[in-house]
Simulated scan of single mutants.
Amino acid sequence: MFSTTSSSASPSLSRRSLLGGIPAAALFALTACSSNAATDSASATSSAATEATASSVTAAVTSASASATVAKLAQAFQATLSSERQSQLLQDYSLTNAKLWSNLPQALLAGGMGGGPGGGGGTGPRIGLNLADLDATQLAAFNALLTAATGSASGLGYEEIQQHLNADDYLAANGGGSDYGRTGYYIAFLGTPADSGTWEFQFGGHHLAVANTYIDGSLAGATPSFRGIEPNGSFEQNGATNQPMAVKEAAFAALLTGLSSDQLAAAQLRNVYSDLVLGPGQDWAFPSAREGVQISALSADQKKLALAAIAGYVNDIADDDAAEILKRYERELDDTYVAYSGTPTLTEQNDYVRIDGPSVWIEFSMQRGIVLSGNHPHSVWRDRTTDYGGTKS
Results as ranks from 00 to 15, higher is better:
residue 278 L to M: 13
residue 62 T to I: 08
residue 16 R to V: 13
residue 322 A to K: 01
residue 62 T to Q: 14
residue 160 E to G: 05
residue 160 E to H: 13
residue 227 R to A: 13
residue 74 A to E: 04
residue 269 L to T: 12
residue 23 P to M: 13
residue 167 A to Y: 03
residue 235 F to Y: 14
residue 327 K to G: 03
residue 179 D to N: 11
residue 312 G to T: 06
residue 387 D to H: 07
residue 264 L to V: 10
residue 274 S to L: 04
residue 29 A to W: 08
residue 202 Q to L: 13
residue 104 L to D: 02
residue 93 Y to P: 06
residue 135 D to R: 00
residue 291 E to M: 06
residue 359 S to G: 11
residue 354 R to C: 13
residue 243 Q to R: 11
residue 306 A to K: 00
residue 169 D to Y: 03
residue 203 F to G: 06
residue 155 G to K: 03
residue 125 P to D: 03
residue 66 A to F: 01
residue 375 N to M: 04
residue 213 T to W: 04
residue 347 T to N: 12
residue 373 S to W: 04
residue 84 E to Y: 09
residue 287 P to R: 03
residue 228 G to N: 06
residue 244 P to N: 06
residue 162 Q to S: 01
residue 109 L to K: 14
residue 210 V to N: 10
residue 35 S to A: 09
residue 349 Q to I: 15
residue 293 V to L: 08
residue 147 T to N: 11
residue 13 L to C: 02
residue 241 T to M: 03
residue 372 L to D: 05
residue 380 V to G: 06
residue 362 I to M: 12
residue 142 F to H: 03
residue 330 E to T: 11
residue 393 S to W: 06
residue 389 G to L: 08
residue 31 T to Q: 10
residue 13 L to N: 10
residue 12 S to I: 12
residue 266 A to V: 13
residue 72 K to L: 09
residue 10 S to L: 09
residue 370 I to Q: 06
residue 75 Q to T: 11
residue 105 P to V: 05
residue 151 G to K: 05
residue 310 I to N: 10
residue 216 D to R: 00
residue 7 S to I: 08
residue 293 V to D: 00
residue 245 M to K: 04
residue 168 D to N: 15
residue 237 Q to Y: 05
residue 236 E to I: 08
residue 162 Q to D: 00
residue 132 A to T: 07
residue 299 S to R: 02
residue 251 A to S: 15
residue 123 T to Q: 14
residue 75 Q to N: 12
residue 166 N to K: 11
residue 374 G to S: 00
residue 334 D to G: 01
residue 304 K to W: 00
residue 67 S to Q: 12
residue 161 I to V: 15
residue 359 S to L: 09
residue 105 P to G: 02
residue 367 Q to K: 11
residue 193 P to K: 00
residue 25 A to D: 14
residue 373 S to E: 11
residue 197 G to A: 04
residue 185 Y to K: 03
residue 142 F to P: 07
residue 382 R to E: 09
residue 79 A to N: 10
residue 181 G to M: 02
residue 186 Y to E: 10
residue 85 R to A: 15
residue 246 A to M: 00
residue 108 L to T: 09
residue 360 V to E: 09
residue 226 F to T: 09
residue 252 F to Q: 10
residue 184 G to C: 02
residue 282 Q to L: 10
residue 348 E to W: 01
residue 365 S to R: 00
residue 20 G to E: 14
residue 254 A to L: 12
residue 299 S to C: 09
residue 199 W to K: 09
residue 74 A to F: 05
residue 167 A to L: 05
residue 291 E to F: 08
residue 388 Y to G: 02
residue 171 L to H: 03
residue 156 L to R: 05
residue 35 S to N: 09
residue 343 T to E: 15
residue 60 A to R: 13
residue 182 R to G: 03
residue 349 Q to W: 03
residue 70 V to Y: 01
residue 362 I to V: 15
residue 244 P to S: 12
residue 34 S to P: 05
residue 47 S to I: 13
residue 331 R to M: 06
residue 91 Q to V: 07
residue 102 S to C: 13
residue 219 L to N: 05
residue 1 M to C: 07
residue 213 T to M: 05
residue 7 S to D: 03
residue 33 C to T: 14
residue 83 S to Y: 05
